[in-house]
Design a protein around this nucleic acid. Sequence first.
DNA 1: CCCCAGGCGTCCA
DNA 2: TGGACGCATGGG
Length: 214
Amino acid sequence: MQPTKLFELLLKYYGEQGWWPSKTSFEMMVGAILTQNTSWKNVEKSINEMRKQGLLKPITLAEASTKTIAAAIKSSGYYNQKAERLKLLAEHTQKYSSLQKIFSKPLPELRKELLSLKGIGPETADSIILYAAKKPIFVIDAYTKRLAERLPLTKEFQDYNALQDFFHKNTPKSTQAYNEYHALIVKHCKEYCKKKPLCSECFLRKDCSRQGLL
DNA sequence: CCCCAGGCGTCCA
DNA sequence: TGGACGCATGGG
């Protein structure tokens, strides 16, 4: 099946998702770190607690102790690691006068800079580039790999870069489309891709076989 | 009791 | 370069 066709089907079925759920770019970045290998439900609690304590701004977060931060984000798990990494992110942001200055860099340079920060790997960097900096990059996560493997969409699903290249080469480059596409994959997988037996119940399979796309 | 959740850094062959 | 492992809470 073509990636553009999959996008069309998901969009028609679920409608627009309007990601990322956050009020500011910095809050988005905080959420991106907190949600690493962690359910979004647990992250929401942490974000709310951080908001309550005024920790969602670079200035206050950079000045808070890791102990304070860790206590606030406890529900997200790995709280000692994540507290340190959030603090480093806040301090890095503070070094520039604003996030806008960081985000205005060319995409490859921005990606390299994000990847140099402790706790920001490929997925987190790409999420930030897409949802906070609003530049066109396709985010690969566990859901995307799973869907690509189970449909199957392609054989290039083992390696992060290979799967990302596959999407980049086979879809029109669009921030808005990539934003929706990734959100739709997550939405879909949360409902249908948790356990393998459910895959046969997935509406994509019915549509695909009906249209001879599998 | 188990497994999983919108990963990443480190270590080791 | 790639596979194992630690990190840790909350829900099913």
